[in-house]
């Protein structure tokens, strides 16, 4: 069993908040609010990356869509288009607005695992997520903060620590990678509902439906 660390990290941002919430009953309330109140949320994000050996912060932004039990669509708009769909055991990269391709992993099961982990977050499948992190949670004046230290050795080879904070929703995710790189992501939920519109449905499920995506 050898995981592709780079791919594994992609799951972290999503499922950590769920683990943190499992730490405290007050978190559980918030969790249930986030997870069960709406089947679908979408919003915008801002991201800053500090890379070892580079004296410049790399900034990007974009949008996200999360549809419970179905999948996630994560799109970077600036400085250029980058998008990923996670749905039903698959991970697909969008090469442009209308075409995507399967993640070129030699072991297909890694994509499946990542996809499962992320969907587990939104379906509150805590049992599946708990095994990868040690979770420390605390309430703050504005909301809550969760610190996640990897207990899974594969994850620990790629990431040192993940910090999640928020109030009603996850608002900020900080990633400290094993290479010394830092990533901060700010999330802003703009739409909540039962299901995405047709376009976002296609974005999330494109890979699953295999409509746009090449294997």
């Amino acid at each position: 069993m050898r995981l592709r660390f780079s791919v594994i990290i992609c799951a972290i941002g999503f499922f950590v908040s769920d683990l943190a919430l499992a730490n405290d009953s007050r978190f559980e309330n918030i969790t249930s609010k986030i997870l069960t109140q709406y089947n679908y949320i979408e919003g915008k994000f801002e991201q800053e990356r500090t890379l070892q050996g580079i004296n410049r912060v790399i900034r990007s932004n974009g949008r996200f869509s999360i549809w419970r039990d179905n999948g996630i669509y994560w799109e970077t708009s600036k400085p250029l288009f980058q998008a990923t769909s996670f749905s039903k055991g698959s991970v697909y990269y969008w090469t442009d607005e209308s075409n995507c391709e399967s993640v070129k992993n030699d072991s297909y099961q890694i994509s499946e695992k990542i996809s499962q982990l992320m969907l587990a977050f939104f379906t509150a499948d805590l049992k599946q997520l708990e095994s990868d992190f040690e979770v420390i949670g605390k309430n703050t004046n504005k909301g809550w903060t969760i610190i996640l230290d990897p207990s899974n050795m594969y994850v620990s080879k790629a990431v040192n620590r993940v910090t999640i904070s928020g109030a009603e929703h996850v608002e900020k995710i900080s990633l400290e990678l094993a290479t010394g790189d830092h990533t901060n992501i700010w999330l802003q939920v703009t739409t909540k509902g039962d299901k995405p519109d047709a376009e976002n449905q296609n974005r999330i499920l494109a890979a699953y439906l295999n409509e746009y995506c090449a294997e």
Partner: peptide, 22 residues
């Protein structure tokens, strides 16, 4: 190059084998 951009911009990937600078 597309993959390099993904590495640089996407939150999900780091450079576990080597630093970006290298």
């Amino acid at each position: 190059i597309q993959a390099a951009w993904r590495r640089l911009l996407s939150f999900q990937t780091g450079h576990p084998v080597s630093h970006f600078a290298k």
